[in-house]
């Protein structure tokens, strides 16, 4: 599974963060557009409510292919924390709350499933070598931010991984870049939390594949974010998490952001 030799349409997303409402909305939207396949690049858990609700959606669909993220690795192996190692005591505080909650509320059978997920997918799309990874081709927890990856570094990653097109997630903010030699790198962003730009909708990547070209666009999905925020609060999770969902601005774990991406947000 599954190479595309003529033409096709594929949806990719990452960073579900327990947000089963945006997950369902994303998958519905992609199917409405007639995609041949859907790829989830990992991180099922995070700061949203009711962790078990994402698994029936993901596990019962034969058209969805799923990778392991660093959060999935930690939950799957029942580790003590998400391994983010923040400097700011405030960031650590919030990261631990959502991790402890997700670890406690995720059923054992789902933890085992997360533990056994694959680390990458390789595909052939009309003679183009495609690689999908969580953080980067070389590390599950490497952040590939738009502002901190030089063109030559991305070219190096593609050379080493023997790929023409690379898809990653992990940072929570999507971007795409066509390198001067025509190769393509896409960070598909996250669907579980807005992209720190003041919009409440979330984005996934829609890919049109043909012999001539591979074109990627980001599709915004609206979902019932008010309901998600209410459920975050009724589960006793921090107000700050609900605020990010209802305002579109990140409120916690901000220190991972490079200067450029930090300046684009409100906090």
């Amino acid at each position: 599974m599954s190479n595309l030799n003529t033409r096709g349409r594929v949806a990719l997303f990452g960073g579900v963060y327990n947000n089963y409402l945006s997950l369902q909305a994303t998958i519905d939207d992609a199917r409405r557009r007639g995609v041949d396949e859907i790829y989830c690049l990992g991180d099922m858990g995070g700061f949203g409510p009711h962790p078990n609700r994402v698994f029936p959606i993901l596990r019962q669909s034969s058209d969805i292919h799923i990778l392991q993220g660093n959060y999935d690795h930690s939950i799957g192996h029942r580790l003590d924390d998400c391994g983010c190692g923040y400097t700011d005591p405030r960031d650590n505080h919030f990261a631990q709350i959502s991790y402890d909650y997700t670890l406690e509320k995720t059923a054992d059978s789902h933890k085992d499933w997360l533990r056994d997920l694959p680390g990458e997918f390789r595909r052939q799309w009309c003679d183009r070598r495609v690689l999908m990874a969580h953080g980067s081709p070389r590390r599950i927890n490497e952040f590939l931010w738009e502002s901190t990856c030089s063109d030559v570094f991305l070219a190096y990653l593609l050379d080493t991984a023997q790929a023409d097109i690379l898809f990653v997630t992990h940072t929570g903010i999507g971007w795409k870049r066509r390198l001067p030699d025509g190769r393509l790198v896409v960070n598909v962003g996250a669907i579980g939390r807005p992209a720190n730009d003041g919009r409440t909708g979330v984005d996934y990547a829609l890919v049109e594949i043909s012999a001539e070209a591979v074109e990627v666009s980001f599709v915004e999905v609206e979902y019932d974010h008010h309901r998600l925020a209410r459920e975050i609060l009724s589960e006793g999770l921090p107000e700050e998490f609900a605020e990010s969902i209802t305002t579109g601005w990140w409120t916690t774990c901000l220190e991972i952001l490079p200067a450029r991406e930090r300046a684009a947000g409100r906090f």
Binding site: T148, C149, S150, V152, F153, A155, Y156, L157, D159
Partner: peptide, 8 residues
């Protein structure tokens, strides 16, 4: 360094 694919 650019020839080596330096990141930053």
């Amino acid at each position: 360094a650019v020839e080596e694919g330096v990141k930053e």
